[in-house]
Nucleic acid binder design. Sequence first.
DNA 1: TGACTCCTTCTACAGCTGTAGTAGTTTGCC
DNA 2: GGCAAACTACTACAGCTGTAGAAGGAGTCA
Lengths: 128, 128
Amino acid sequence: MRLSGAEWKVMSVVWDRGTASARDVLDVLEAETEWAYTTVKTILARLAGKGALAVEMRGNTSEYQAKVTQEEARQSALLSLADSAFEGSLSPMLHFLANRDSISKKDREELIALLEAKPGRPGRKGGR
Amino acid sequence: MRLSGAEWKVMSVVWDRGTASARDVLDVLEAETEWAYTTVKTILARLAGKGALAVEMRGNTSEYQAKVTQEEARQSALLSLADSAFEGSLSPMLHFLANRDSISKKDREELIALLEAKPGRPGRKGGR
DNA sequence: TGACTCCTTCTACAGCTGTAGTAGTTTGCC
DNA sequence: GGCAAACTACTACAGCTGTAGAAGGAGTCA
């Protein structure tokens, strides 16, 4: 499930709200975009078309609901970026990020804690 | 500098070799793609057009050389992904990655070492 | 000098993305 | 019951991407 830039914006609103109409999405995005109502509709339709959203008519209004989780979408975006830009694996990406000096001390500490907290997980594969 | 999937493949070869002709690129990529020679040429031309590559004629052959580093390209790809999918900041992305249980024990240890090795950099902000 | 081979530039075309407009249907209100 | 508001479905169109084909110049070898 590959999402385009505009699709991410729309999905974010739906993830946030659980369920949303085109109007809801537009109301939220009005702050950051200048989209016309029909632009939102088009993107929603495309998302429904590719199976990212479920649509249900309520009265004369379509209500949209996410069929993929944000986690899943994020993961697949990261994998796809790793694939094109980081030799296909997440770990060079992590290394790259961990090396950035734009990471704050606080972040670093949190991350260390996170990484240390993870269980050993010796042989397990095919997670989730 | 936004690179498309095909452009990443081509840039990778150029980064690897320092300088490359279309033929060189094709030779390397023949293993993983089935591109025609002219496909490679098209992508090279687009990359030159957007300033990612410099071109120099040597005999009757164009030699291409990277004008952006892999680091820069990776960074901007990550920023752009962070922007669309992770609320605009790298740290949720790092958190997300660090939380994946697909990270090997070895990676975790390396990362912890990396993160711990970074200097304190106390008050500095607005990085790079 | 002609046939190959290799390289170049130009052109093409379909699918995806951003961004809507138009027209037709429902609905709520006076 | 009719009009405005809101919704829907359909259509459009330009720019980007993947993927080439065609045509033509140049070096090379018999």
